[in-house]
């Protein structure tokens, strides 16, 4: 088990290393930030000063090693607009993102599994078809479009829910962003649960359970569901990871002061360190969560080969 953990850990570090490298090279394509920060009017000496401050006068290889060294020690640079350390700002914002992500995932998991079971048990019925259409809808509508539609319907027409702001103002501020964010994972979890349940419901051991005289309830929840959960758990954890990485559009549209909002706000300001920092942070978080999920899997299921 320990060897397994160490192996997974090393691989995760390798992945993060790759992520950093790719981000470094993408960001290296950027136009000269010294000019962008100061605009066209900046005199050459100021630009040179900024370049040397940012280390941009060094050769690419040297900058790469600087960048990697800094990043691995948690130094993601300073924001061009606020001049605060990027990591500090991200961590401060992360609380809001995490609140949104966790609450959305709780709803998505419960509803998604429930809908999935229902449509598997009643497969090819009206309910199943409705849930298919619902799921397709959830999968097809981009989150910013869904958010705006919700704002129009619940905020402007019905005027029953607040459309902009953080939970500081009241818990009802959570509702719209949470539901918008949950819609996609609900749909996907429902589809995954359905197909996994359909597989399992046609399994021989489910037939055995029926032949024993077990009730439909027992067959579904005791015998089938437990075996069908594996792909569902994978989906849930992958979605949690990706929601924690920031729900950019939803945070932006609902004015939710999280990490994603910060990244979107940074775009028109050309605040590259912030964008770069969010990308790195999100990717690292993703890798870490997947690492933890792998460990938990191995720990829960002794049949998973520790290879």
């Amino acid at each position: 088990m320990l060897a397994f953990i160490i192996k997974k850990l090393l691989y995760s570090v390798l992945i993060i290393f790759g992520v950093m490298t790719i981000i470094f090279f993408i960001m290296n394509l950027l136009p000269d930030p010294a000019r962008m920060m100061q605009g066209q009017r900046a005199d050459l000496s100021t630009q040179a000063a900024i370049r040397s401050e940012l280390g941009l006068d060094k050769p690419v290889v040297a900058r790469y090693f600087d960048f990697m060294g800094n990043a691995f020690t948690g130094n993601l640079g300073r924001s061009y607009t606020t001049n605060l350390p990027v990591l500090e700002s991200i961590l401060e914002r992360f609380k809001a993102t995490a609140l949104l992500a966790f609450s959305a995932m709780i709803i998505a998991t419960i509803l998604g599994i429930a809908i999935g079971i229902l449509s598997a048990v009643k497969s090819y019925s009206l309910i199943d078809n409705l849930s298919l259409v619902f799921a397709m809808f959830g999968i097809s509508v981009p989150s910013f479009v869904m958010g705006l539609l919700f704002i129009i319907v619940f905020g402007s027409w019905l005027e029953i829910l607040p459309i902009s702001g953080y939970v500081d103002n009241g818990i009802e501020y959570l509702i719209l962003p949470m539901v918008t964010l949950a819609l996609r994972p609900i749909s996907i979890i429902a589809r995954v649960t359905r197909s996994s349940m359909l597989d399992v419901l046609s399994a021989d051991y489910v037939r055995t359970a029926k032949a024993k005289g077990a009730t439909q309830r027992t067959v579904i929840f005791r015998h089938a569901l437990r075996n069908a959960l594996n792909p569902v758990v994978t989906t849930v954890s992958a979605w949690l990871a990706s929601l924690l990485a920031g729900a950019f559009f939803i945070e932006y549209i609902f004015n939710w002061p999280g990490m994603g909002w910060m990244a979107v706000e940074a775009i028109p300001r050309s605040d590259f360190p912030t964008i770069q920092g969010v990308v790195i942070f999100a990717a690292v978080l993703f890798v870490v969560i997947n690492f933890l999920v792998d460990i938990v899997y191995a720990w829960l299921d002794p049949k998973v080969k520790l290879a």
């Binding site: 993060i16 790719i22 993408i26 964008i275 990308v279 890798v287």
Partner: peptide
């Protein structure tokens, strides 16, 4: 590695850059 970076962020980063 590519899978680990949220794709929309990667797309944004490339277009900005």
């Amino acid at each position: 590695v590519i899978w680990s970076i949220p794709s929309i962020l990667l797309v944004i980063a490339i277009t900005i850059a």
